Simulated assay, not measured.
Amino acid sequence: MAGHRIYGMSFGSIHPLYVQKVERKDRTRAEVDEVIRWLTGYDEAGLERAIADGRTLEAFFAEAPELNPNAALITGVICGVRVEEIEDPLMQRIRYMDKLVDEVARGKRMSSILRGS
């Protein structure tokens, strides 16, 4: 099965776009990094390596230490599709990350974004 073209995009090229999005709404890179680490289990150094080494989104999630068990609590619509109804596990994880960053940009409280963790 051929993967979606987003799977081959580098995480390092997408991360700055997330940061720009939230900074326009007076939020910070630290908040973006916090939600991504919460979702994926990367520590700060691991996340920095993932940004720097050019790994694809597919590799980023494949090499993630552990998807947060509360990720299934992420619901809502992203790109016109309900994230909880996405069948492809990799696409669902990418959309979870998109949804978390959107919630940061919208000004949601971090405790709510991190699903009470």
Rank of each mutant, 00 (worst) to 15 (best):
A105V: 05
V104H: 06
D53K: 12
I51W: 10
G46L: 07
I113M: 08
L47F: 06
V35D: 07
I74Q: 01
M110E: 02
I14A: 08
Q92C: 01
E103S: 07
A45K: 11
E34F: 10
A64Y: 11
I14Y: 04
S111Y: 13
V83A: 00
W38A: 12
E58P: 05
A59D: 14
D33G: 11
L114C: 08
I36C: 09
I36K: 09
G107Y: 06
A45T: 03
L114I: 03
R55H: 05
R115N: 08
I51C: 12
A62E: 15
R93K: 12
G41A: 11
P69E: 05
D88K: 00
K21W: 10
K25D: 13
L47M: 06
A72I: 09
N68M: 04
P16G: 01
G41D: 15
G12V: 02
L100M: 04
A62G: 12
S111K: 15
T75C: 00
V35I: 09
L90I: 06
R5S: 07
H4N: 15
A30Y: 13
S117Y: 10
G116Q: 09
Y18I: 00
S10L: 10
T56G: 02
F61E: 11
S111L: 14
A45E: 10
Y96R: 03
F11H: 11
G116H: 13
L57F: 13
H4A: 15
A45V: 00
N70P: 03
R37S: 01
F60A: 13
V19M: 02
D98L: 07
E31I: 06
Q20I: 01
E103R: 10
I36Y: 11
V32G: 09
E103H: 07
L47A: 02
T28L: 08
R115D: 00
V22F: 10
R29Y: 11
Y7T: 14
A45P: 01
V101G: 03
T56V: 05
K25F: 13
V35K: 09
A105D: 12
L17R: 09
A2Q: 14
R27G: 04
I36H: 09
A59G: 04
Y42C: 04
A62L: 08
P65T: 03
R5P: 10
I36D: 11
D43R: 02
I78K: 05
V19Q: 00
V101Q: 05
G41I: 12
P89H: 00
G3E: 14
R106E: 13
A64M: 04
V101C: 02
M110Y: 01
G8A: 15
